[in-house]
Each structure stands twice: as C-alpha cells, then as structure tokens.
Amino acid sequence: MTKKVLVQVSSILKKKSLQNRKKVEDLLRTAHLGDVECNTIEQLYGLEGNFSLEEIQRIAQELLCDPIAEKFIIDAKPKDFKTIFLDVWFKSGVTDPVAESVLKAIRDLNILTIENAFFGMRYEFKESAEVRERIADEKLILFANRHLLNPLVQQCQLIKYR
C-alpha cells in the first residue's frame, strides 16, 4: 500500500536561519503583512511508497540531513492554532531535479520501497488570533504567489493546526 511522508529539514545555524527569515519578514512588511511573523524556512522532502519508518529515518539521517548543520522532523504538524505552514511545491509535470537526485540516492542506499520523491520549501508563519481575523488565507497565498514562488511552475498549500 502506498504511503506518504514528509521530512522537514531545517538549519541549526542560527545566523543563516535568521538571514533567510529576515528577508521574508522584510517582504511581508512591504506587502503590508508586517503582523505576520516568519518563524522558520525549511526544506521539505515528500516521499511516497510502501516504506517502513526505519527506512525513512535512515534516508533522513544519511541522505537528506547534514547532521552537523541541520536537523529533521518527520511529518511535522503546526503545534498550535497560531502556527501556519505554507508549503511550496513544483506543479505536476515540472522537472524536479532535486527530487530526481534524491530518488536516485535512495536507490543507491539499496532502499527500494520509495516510488516517488518531491522537493519543496516550508515557511512557518505565526499570527495571533487578532491578526488571523484581519488577514485572510487568500492574502497569505497572494503574498506567497508574488514573493515566495512562481505560480507558473510552483504551487503552495496552507496547513493549519487541527
């Protein structure tokens, strides 16, 4: 049976992480969304197949994550109602070279249960209840389409706390 899993890889080097977040927050301010905070920006790997959790952990540890500079979380969820994930992926049919390399490398690890791989970016935003009332999801998606992705080849998805 085909299963899906998301591996989220983030930098533990504070300086790098801060620089990237600052850029996004500057863009948010320019777009009059200064009340929305950007908590983290992470790399996202989607894997499909009939895999075991051990295999995913091995892939994350040995392949997707640099243990000195990065950490990973499997199937992360927004931790509270203030947190929103905005995931950016290539549209279907667009070449995803990182994913192709990941798939090849997984096979080189002799793990043959992964059928598909996808590469994306995850932006974790934080907004208070008051801000959320004012800023509709559409505004955040509009912002993402304008500044964080190219709608011609990419698409985004908001993931909220449940």
Partner: peptide
C-alpha cells in the same frame, strides 16, 4: 516530458499573459 513544448515558436513571440507552464523548463545539471 512536456517540458518546454513550443519553446522555439514561443521565443519568436512577444511575452504575453497566460503562458502555459509547459514552455518553461527546469534543468537537471547532474
């Protein structure tokens, strides 16, 4: 795949709105 279909004829046209994603290619250096 469907990458870059009509690239040659597209390059002879002026840039217009509503262009299909298929005219754009993403490279794979490796």
């Amino acid at each position: 795949g469907r990458d870059g279909i009509h690239g040659a004829t597209f390059s002879s046209l002026s840039l217009q709105k509503d262009i299909s994603a298929s005219v754009v290619q993403i490279g794979h250096a490796i």
